[in-house]
């Protein structure tokens, strides 16, 4: 009986996570439009609801009732599977983020590896979507995104390894607790920079949005998608953005530690600041070329992340074993 309760609780949490990511996506799309408008000296959405706050809700209703268009020569199975395999891992990765309060999930001893591993499945979805669309732009976008993901995964993982060395645990709750006096951004500033920049590449944002560069690939792997399936790609993009920002908060910004207010408040606040930082970068910097992107990953970030590992070892020697 207790088993069934645990099982049902898990299912309920899954539904909550899915709804949470859905709501976040709507909020983030609005935020992104407002932020980009301010940076480009515009006002952004203004007329639907107070200050245009209901604009994404209206957009979402439009997307859901839109006709589901599929190219006649597209592979039906892969075309449907693509958006699903892209969106689900982004939501699953939230399972190990210790937000605090009732959302302090502590099930997995290897949560840090889980967070690096599960979003990796997204690439399969992008490749399938790009291939199944039967369209050269989509196909190129899918291939580019997977090449980019595989390349940037290596320095990003090494940046996380340095944090794990200092924390001495792969459990996300322990990593948060280990930063009690000083957050790791102070001990490992280089690691933080490497993590943030490679994360931008992992979630396909400018200056690393080569897979969907509109000036050359129309919209990359989701060129042929419309309606709800297209919305799923958006869900995946902003879900991954939120998860990556939450992970940055957990690894480098001291997780939920802060004065007076409860953990969950500080955790969400720090995460939102990181999300804003990502948006700020997106609307200020131009995009890299595909070859520059690869050179940057292998010739700059891989060596930097190795240097960071050595620095982490030195810090470990200095503060003594944990």
């Amino acid at each position: 009986m207790r088993d069934l309760l645990v099982f049902g609780w898990g299912l309920a949490l899954g539904v909550v996570a899915f709804s949470l990511v859905g709501g976040l996506t709507a909020a983030f799309v609005l935020l992104e439009r407002k932020v980009s408008a301010r940076i480009q000296l515009r006002v952004g959405p203004l007329h639907t609801g107070p200050h245009g706050m209901l604009q994404t809700v209206a957009d979402l209703i439009k997307l859901v009732v839109k006709e589901d268009v599929r190219p006649s020569r597209a592979d039906p199975v892969a075309f449907r599977l693509g958006p699903l395999l892209t969106a689900v891992p982004a939501i699953l990765s939230l399972a190990v983020i210790p937000f605090g309060g009732p959302l302090l999930m502590r099930g997995l001893n290897v949560g840090v590896v889980y967070f690096l591993a599960v979003p990796g499945m997204t690439v399969i979805g992008l490749l399938l979507a790009g291939w199944a669309s039967y369209d050269n732009y989509s196909f190129l976008g899918g291939l580019r995104s997977s090449a980019q993901f595989i390349s940037y995964e290596i320095p990003r993982t090494l940046a996380v390894v340095a944090v794990v060395m200092l924390a001495g645990s792969l459990n996300t709750v322990d990593v948060a607790a280990a930063q009690q006096p000083w957050p790791y951004i102070l001990l490992l500033p280089l690691g933080f920079v490497v993590y943030m920049i490679t994360t931008l590449a992992e979630v396909n944002r400018v200056p690393f949005d080569i897979p969907e560069a509109e000036s050359e690939l129309v919209a990359g792997y989701h060129t042929e998608y419309s309606g709800f399936r297209w919305a799923l790609f958006f869900l995946a993009e902003y879900g991954a953005l939120f998860a990556a920002a939450a992970f940055a908060t957990l690894l480098f910004l001291g997780a939920g530690s802060g004065p007076f207010l409860p953990d969950i408040f500080w955790f969400v606040l720090k995460t939102l600041i990181v999300v804003f930082l990502f948006m700020w970068i997106r609307w200020t910097l131009p995009r890299f070329r595909a070859d520059q992107l690869m050179r940057l990953a292998w010739k700059v970030f891989l060596p930097l992340s190795l240097v960071n590992l050595v620095l982490a070892a030195l810090v470990m020697q200095a503060i003594g074993p944990r």
Partner: peptide
Amino acid sequence: FVAVVQIFVYVG
């Protein structure tokens, strides 16, 4: 650990 590495290395 083996489960997560299985996904990391083989699926991803």
